[in-house]
């Protein structure tokens, strides 16, 4: 008896979400097969890579990153460089300096920067808040407003949490027509609950992405992998409309903050180059996220972006 592949093509599919405008727009999701299973059915929208830059500058002390941004005198110039990074699909601007414990920059200043960055780059943009629940609920509203003004930039807002989803999601998706990410803490039930709550506000699931949490390889990554895998299964096999949003996973913010990436070579001579450790950590975590089911990963180092982009090319 000859072998025949029993293709697993599901009757339902992941939602498709488009960000950006014109011929530079990109789409996430849409697949009706398990992650990267192109041998079961074609995957129309390949997983995407977002390049993260912070309004406080790039990650310091990593030669490859410093070299890439050499000469950029401000965040707008950095954004232009990041947008042209080989393999980059979209730009992620993190407004870290708005955090009350980290500079407490005013909302006006932040929004002004967002406007300038949106004008400066032509690839799609995601804007992330400062991870302070209270500040973000005010900040992200103004960011969404700025993105709609003039010619609508159709951006992605990160993120609406359990504590501030009403303000963030309503402003981003209802009032100003942008797209919103629902962020929950590594649990399929919490993820679904937040999606339902946001949906009750009148926001279409088609305007949403999910961030199910993130961790670096070795740091409880099994929770991330299993949550993503379970959510994908629920979306595809059980047609759960409240779990069918494409998944976005920040990787660099985790992987460049662990000891494996931070420890200096002087302290750990046998570990070898700190930069090689950081890139391997970022690449390994991102590849594992894609294998689990992320539709987009957020990265920082040019070598990681290049490698993961080629990995996706090879698998599609």
């Amino acid at each position: 008896m000859a072998y025949k592949n029993e293709a697993q093509v599901f009757p339902s599919s992941i939602n498709t979400l488009t960000i950006g405008i014109g011929d530079k727009a990109i789409a996430f999701g849409g697949e009706n097969v398990l992650p990267l299973y192109t041998f079961d059915a074609p995957i129309e929208h390949r997983p995407k890579i977002g390049v993260a830059i912070s309004d406080m500058g790039y990650i310091k002390g990593v030669p490859g990153i410093e070299k890439f941004y050499a000469g950029a005198e401000n965040v707008i110039e950095m954004a232009k460089l990041a947008a042209n990074m080989p393999g980059a699909d979209f730009l992620v601007l993190c407004l870290d300096s708005a955090n009350p414990n980290n500079g407490d920059k005013s909302i006006e200043e932040c929004v002004d920067l967002v406007k300038k960055v949106l004008e400066a780059v032509d690839i799609p943009v995601a804007v992330e808040g400062c991870k302070n629940i209270e500040k973000d609920s005010r900040l992200l509203e103004k960011v969404a407003e700025a993105a709609q003004e003039g010619s609508d930039k159709n951006i992605l807002i990160l993120s609406a949490h359990e504590e501030n989803y009403k303000a963030v999601a309503t402003a981003a998706a209802l009032a100003y027509g942008q797209n919103v990410t629902a962020e929950s803490a590594v649990d399929i039930n919490l993820a679904k609950q937040l999606n339902v709550l946001i949906n009750v506000l009148g926001i279409s699931p088609e305007k949403m992405m999910m961030n199910l949490g993130s961790a670096a390889a070795g740091y409880g990554f099994e929770y991330i992998a299993s949550t993503i895998e379970r959510v994908k299964m629920a979306a595809l096999a059980q047609d759960d409309a409240m779990l069918k949003m494409p998944i976005i996973t920040p990787v660099s913010s985790e992987t460049w903050a662990v000891k494996e990436s931070l420890a200096s070579q002087e302290d750990y001579p046998e570990w070898g180059s700190a930069e090689a450790r950081g890139v391997n950590m970022e690449v390994s975590t991102a590849a594992a996220c894609l294998a689990a089911g992320s539709n987009a990963v957020i990265l920082a180092h040019p070598d990681s972006v290049k490698t993961i982009s080629e990995l996706i090319d090879n698998l599609m």
């Binding site: 070795g218 990554f221 494996e260 450790r277 391997n280 975590t285």
Partner: peptide, 19 residues
């Protein structure tokens, strides 16, 4: 290399733990 081993063995340990 050590820089490869650190994430790869960490990832493997995570994935193959008993939930």
């Amino acid at each position: 290399t050590y820089p490869q081993a650190l994430p790869l063995y960490g990832l493997r340990q995570n994935i193959f733990t008993d939930p």
